[in-house]
Every structure is written in C-alpha cells, then in structure tokens.
Design a protein around this nucleic acid. Sequence first.
DNA 1: CCTGAAAAGCCCTCACG
DNA 2: CGTGAGGGCTTTTCAGG
Lengths: 156, 156
Amino acid sequence: MKSTPDNLKIDGIDKEILRFLMKDARKSILEIARNIGISGAAIHQRLRKLESSGLIAGSKFVINPKALGYTTMAYIGIYLDKAMSNPSAVKELEKIPEVLECHYTTGNWSILIKVLCRDNEHLMQVLNKNIQQIEGVSRTETFISLDQQIDRQITI
Amino acid sequence: MKSTPDNLKIDGIDKEILRFLMKDARKSILEIARNIGISGAAIHQRLRKLESSGLIAGSKFVINPKALGYTTMAYIGIYLDKAMSNPSAVKELEKIPEVLECHYTTGNWSILIKVLCRDNEHLMQVLNKNIQQIEGVSRTETFISLDQQIDRQITI
DNA sequence: CCTGAAAAGCCCTCACG
DNA sequence: CGTGAGGGCTTTTCAGG
C-alpha cells in the first residue's frame, strides 16, 4: 500500500536526483552519481525509496506536437445541462483523441478541457462534430493558445 | 489531408516504439525490441533517427504533486492593462514557481495560466501577493480544478 | 533497413563500514 | 547512509545481407 505523505522525508540529495530525472528521465544512475558525487549504489537505493514512497508517478517521453503538424492548442470551457452528469460527459470526451486534459471546475463552466489540433479548421471540426454533439453540452467557449510561454512541473 | 509534415516519415514500428516510451521513458531498448519482435540494434537506430528528427522533445520523470502536499490546481484568466506588454508580464509570472503553464490566448483574457498550490489558502496568497502585484494586471478570474479526469499526450 | 556479435558500460545486489 | 566489487544485462557500434 501507499505510504502516507507524513513519513516522506526527502533531503537535498533526493531533490538533486529528482531534478536531474525530471529534466531527462533516461539519464543513467551512474551519470547522476558522478554529478552529485556519491556512489551509484547510493543513488539506486534512494531511487527505490522514492519510487515506493509514491512520489514518482512515472516517466514519459515528451513528443513535439509541432513536428507532427499539430500547431493549434486551445482551452474550451463547456456548459453542461443540469440533467447531464459530469462522468458521462467525461466518458465521451475520452473518446476524442484531441482532448488532452479535462478538468471538473468551479466557476462558470462545468468542464474545462485542453485540446490539440492540427490547425484552426481541425479545431472547428472537433468542436462541431465531436464536442457539440455530446448530449448535455449546451454551449462552449473557446480560447486559442497563440503561444505557450511557460510549461514546467512543480519545483522541488 | 496530410497529418504529418513531408520530411518526417514515421512508420508503424516507430509509432510502437514511441508509444512504449511515452508511457515509460525508462523502458529498456531491448525490452521494447522483444515486445515488437525486431533486434535491439534496429530499435536503437530508429530512436536515433527519431531524436534527430526533432519529434522527441525530451523525457521527464513525472512526480506526484499530492505526495508533496500540493492538492489545489487552478486556472487563472488574467486581464492586462493595454499599456502592459505580454512579455514583461510573462517574465514576472516565470518567477512564481506555482505557475506551471502560461498561455497567450485569444478571447476575454490576455493570459491564461495554470497554477498548482498546496491548498486554497496558498492559492489565495499566490493570487494576492504574487499575481495581483504584477504591474499591469488589472483583474483575474480563477477556476479551481476540483478533479482532473483526463491527462494525456497526443495520440500517435 | 535489418541482423548478430562483441566491447564497453550500466544496473542491481550484496556484505560490510 | 554510505561504499566497492561482481555477475548479468543493456547499450552502442559495426560489418555484412
């Protein structure tokens, strides 16, 4: 089972290890060890501890959407009819591959989603043919990201 | 309708390799090779090709913010005075570690940001003591994410 | 574009300070 | 916590089909 957040003690060396791997998940343990100045075995032990603590959610290759021709990112606020339950809307949104994030939010909308499309025309199709077709979706508000200027993880 | 730019040719095997690594960046080349059914050397060559094509933006360890006590995520729409330039606002936002994303958007706001805070009180402090203090920020609208139900990358 | 082989390097465990 | 040593696996390169 998971350990509780309270018995999680990460020191400066743990933080250094994490900072290296958050930038490059494929960096070798020995290279990190040489950078920090302790043995590979020590890094290995600390990593196992960090993994079993639940702090590490996994690792990912990040692919560059622009290289695949996906250049239009947008946020869409969705109003749902009162009769429409959030879970069944999410189930439909999951089927749309262009939907990368979905948040159940406070405020005007029921749902806020992030979509990634090839271009504005593609975005329009996703809006008209996919999102607006979902039962219970009454209205949407779209905000196109002209430029993403910050993209990072939590600072450790 | 083309889905990829012309100079980039990725076939089914490339896609399989990427799908494995997008899920787990530390999966070994040989393990991928065994799954796909070709030699490790072939996977290695294809990975080098994919890296030099610009398709791969990097790799990341994903850490679990909840394990660090960060449980409140929110989106904040920011209105800027006309006199305030976007780049100088972004420069200030970069200094706030709780700001994870920053988008220059069409629509009502000048800027849409994503923040991650420990709790609602921390969010309030970030709003009052950091964001509202930035020169040129006239008004903000905050949407707390009660639950993030989808979080994924582009489908390959 | 693939392969298998071979050298170099890394992962992981262990016994111990 | 830390270490260094060692067996086994991986990475990386290369000549060849």
